[in-house]
Amino acid sequence: MMVSISSYLMVALILFCVGLYGALTKRNAVIVLISIELMLNAVNINLVAFSKFGLHPGVTGQIFTLFTMTVAAAEVAVGLAILIALYRNKETVNVDEMDQMKR
């Protein structure tokens, strides 16, 4: 029994939906960042699956995955730096208390 492409797309879809739900409902900003990482990982699974099962198999999807990983790592570093700076000034990490621009 061969694993088809739609099985991999299903796993990625479930992972993406879980990440989206977490990013929209969680309160701690670190957890929101983690949920965004989950969504990026789901996209990576899709890219690698299409680089094997797509119409033109090759390594392009894998190279795109490497680029995505690098950008995600940069995003996490800057996001945590912003979070730590905010925690130093506001003593909170909850996203619903970060409303200085609304007041």
Binding site: V11, I45, S51
Partner: peptide, 8 residues
């Protein structure tokens, strides 16, 4: 592990 399974 998924990536290794996919040949990457």
């Amino acid at each position: 592990g998924h990536f290794v399974l996919l040949g990457a």
